[in-house]
Amino acid sequence: MGTAQILFWSLTALALISAIMVLVSKNPVYSVLWLIVVFFAISGHYILLNAQFLAIVNLIVYAGAIMVLFLFVIMLMNLNTETEPQKSIWMKFFGVVAGGLLLSFFISFVISSADLKGKSAQLKEGEIGLIKTLGKALFNDYVIPFEIASILFLSAMVGAVVIGKKD
């Protein structure tokens, strides 16, 4: 087992354990903190796949910006165990059953998909996630969607100003 594989399995275990901890933590602030660990583990996976840009963006956007937003909202709403609505045991039971069925449904499809058997991910040598490749693809083939995406941001900005401005 090479270094890459050891790293892969340890990161996978970390991601799964912290994802479970997000769900079982009673305190929402702890959930958010565990979620940050999940994002770091997934960023580690991206680095293993030689996609440094994606890893950094994942950290900046998700672990940085979105998690701060999450924390703010949780603090403003002042959530704790007293205010948490108590769900009946049957709700929880059916939730687990439905979620588990959906999960096994997707897993079975992924496993049964013939194309995926015997294929392994490119560790370290993949070129596709490098920022140079990404930039070339973005400004050559995908320049029109890139421009349209900038119009998308324009519309988001105008919308936010319209809704948020004082009269």
């Binding site: 995908y142 029109i144 969607p145 349209i148 995406a149 998308l152 519309s155 919308g159 936010a160």
Partner: peptide, 17 residues
């Protein structure tokens, strides 16, 4: 799919406001 998604988002983000 790419233009499908971007077009759809452009349509709906303006619609929210």
């Amino acid at each position: 799919f790419m233009s499908f998604f971007i077009g759809l988002e452009l349509l709906s983000i303006s619609l929210y406001a």
